[in-house]
């Protein structure tokens, strides 16, 4: 069984990103190939902000996602429309909007909702965290 995770809850207003991280860790421990991809939508895209600086005595939730994704080779997608409107910008978008900086954290990629549809159709189950 392969899962796709759809995360929609803000990393600041909700524990969606944290609960999904706990889920993914548990799933991978038992079934190393059980996660096909993770799609962040709505305020959850704020997870991909590379310049956010959490207090040092708290979890760095962006780093935690980067670590698990790298260890297990899991793609982390942010909805491009949701991300760009919230200031999460990659290099390409930065040039498109003639900005001087980009803010997308390493290990995350901006993709359209079509990528989510593709994940949906190639995994057994989608689980939403909100």
């Amino acid at each position: 069984m392969q899962y796709t995770l759809l995360i929609t809850g803000s990393p600041y207003q909700t524990k969606a990103c944290h609960s999904a991280l706990r889920f993914i860790k548990a799933a991978l421990l038992e079934y190393p190939n059980s996660i096909k991809g993770v799609f962040f939508y709505e305020d959850a895209v704020l997870i991909g902000n590379q310049i956010a600086q959490p207090p040092r005595d708290e979890i760095n939730i962006t780093q935690a996602w980067q670590d698990i994704a790298q260890q297990h080779n899991i793609p982390l997608y942010l909805c491009i429309a949701a991300a760009v409107r919230r200031g999460i910008i990659n290099d390409t978008e930065s040039r498109r909007y003639e900005l001087e900086q980009h803010t997308l954290a390493e290990g995350f990629q901006l993709e359209g909702l079509g990528t989510f549809v593709d994940l949906m159709n190639t995994t057994n189950k989608v689980i939403q965290f909100r």
Binding site: Y41, E42, A82, L113, G114, V117
Partner: peptide, 17 residues
């Protein structure tokens, strides 16, 4: 939320889901 939920519905429909 409402807008982004509707956006997802429209994209799903566009992809003939």
């Amino acid at each position: 939320a409402c807008k982004e939920g509707l956006d997802l519905a429209l994209v799903l429909a566009t992809f003939e889901q």
